[in-house]
Design a protein around this nucleic acid. Structure first.
Length: 116
DNA sequence: CGATTGACGTACG
DNA sequence: TCGTACGCCAATC
């Protein structure tokens, strides 16, 4: 029975945090990784996103960008324009594969989910 | 089992 | 300021 633990707990936690990202807001791989305790595991977050497509419920991976606010993973959405389109549907302006006002729309779990 | 890769980030020149 | 090098850790070859 237990077909759980298909991925590491780290991955599962990544999905959970990504789902907590409000609509119209974005976050970064590094911020999530840091929130989970692996400040240098940013690559793992990106790798987790790679598998996020078959995760249920839906994981808004398009809200996760790199520290530069660039849509680095847009090529992994099937269509290169899909990620930008999803962001625009949430009212996020994207220009040259970069989110406009990224620092304003930036949603940092270390702050929003901060444990007192 | 070892080498390479990867949706990143930081350090260094 | 920009380009290159390296580290992180899991997955793939």
């Amino acid at each position: 029975m237990l077909m759980a633990k298909m991925q590491s707990d780290f991955f599962r936690d990544v999905y959970e945090v990504v789902r907590l990202i409000p609509q119209g807001r974005v976050s970064s791989y590094g911020a999530i990784a840091r929130y989970l305790g692996s400040s240098r595991g940013s690559r793992m977050v990106g790798y987790a996103m790679n598998a996020a497509h078959h995760q249920i419920p839906y994981v808004p991976a398009h809200r996760v960008l790199n520290r530069n606010g660039m849509l680095t993973g847009k090529h992994h959405f099937g269509d290169p324009d899909a990620m930008q389109k999803l962001l625009e549907l949430e009212g996020i302006q994207v220009e040259s594969d970069v989110v406009v006002n990224f620092e304003v729309l930036f949603w940092d779990p270390n702050i929003e989910l901060k444990i007192d």
